[in-house]
């Protein structure tokens, strides 16, 4: 009898990582511009349901996939909308960092991960939320890049985007974890 088991590190980059990363980025790039929901009380930034892909892909498939989904997905979304992939490159980096941090969540939320599906779904929400709050700090680089005012970045960019994306993350990431895990069990790998 040959018994094979392959430990797969969080940082492995194989066909699986590459395909998930590409799917995440493609989905995010396509969907992010499609529906935007205005959040009352904020001006410029909307809740973008497709954003949930970034923390979810990070949480479910690891930091490498999360980083790529956020970074490349955001660039593609910007490019499709005409904004240009590199015009706001620092925002793409911010999205990538969110995916990366969400991918690290299973490591530091160890106790939540070993529980029931419900606990893992909650872990996805918590890990995603932390990633959003920290990851989007990157957008303060607009103060250097575009000479934006600190208060302007804080009130027109950071706070609205974090509020919108927290709503989306907390609602949708657990739903996606719930839907995906049973499917994963059936795939045979």
């Amino acid at each position: 009898m040959t018994s094979m088991s392959m430990p797969r590190s969080m940082w492995t980059v194989d066909s699986r990582t590459i395909v998930y990363a590409a799917i995440g980025a493609a989905l995010y790039g396509v969907l992010v511009g499609l529906f935007k929901i205005p959040v009352p009380g904020t001006t410029a930034v909307d809740a973008r349901p497709a954003f949930a892909l970034v923390p979810f892909f990070g949480f479910a498939f690891g930091p490498v996939v999360g980083l790529f989904t956020g970074l490349v997905g955001n660039m593609i979304g910007d490019q499709i909308s005409g904004w240009g992939a590199l015009t706001s490159y620092n925002w793409s980096i911010a999205n990538g960092v969110v995916g990366l941090l969400a991918g690290l969540a299973p490591a530091y939320l160890g106790s939540m991960m070993s529980g029931s599906l419900g606990r893992r779904a909650a872990a996805g929400a918590v890990g995603g939320a932390i990633a959003v709050v920290i990851g989007f700090l990157v957008v303060f680089s607009d103060m250097i890049k575009d000479q934006m005012d600190f208060n302007a970045v804080l009130t027109t960019e950071y706070i609205p985007v974090v509020i919108g994306d927290l709503i989306v993350t907390i609602i949708l990431v657990p739903v996606l974890v719930y839907a995906w895990e049973p499917v994963k069990e059936r795939l045979g790998r």
Partner: peptide, 28 residues
Amino acid sequence: NPVARVRRQIPVLVPTIVNAIAGAEDTI
């Protein structure tokens, strides 16, 4: 209500995302 509006997207987002991932097996 933005929460209600995000929830309303579940019926399109969940199948699109889950199917895309499940369909990745053959590509892998």
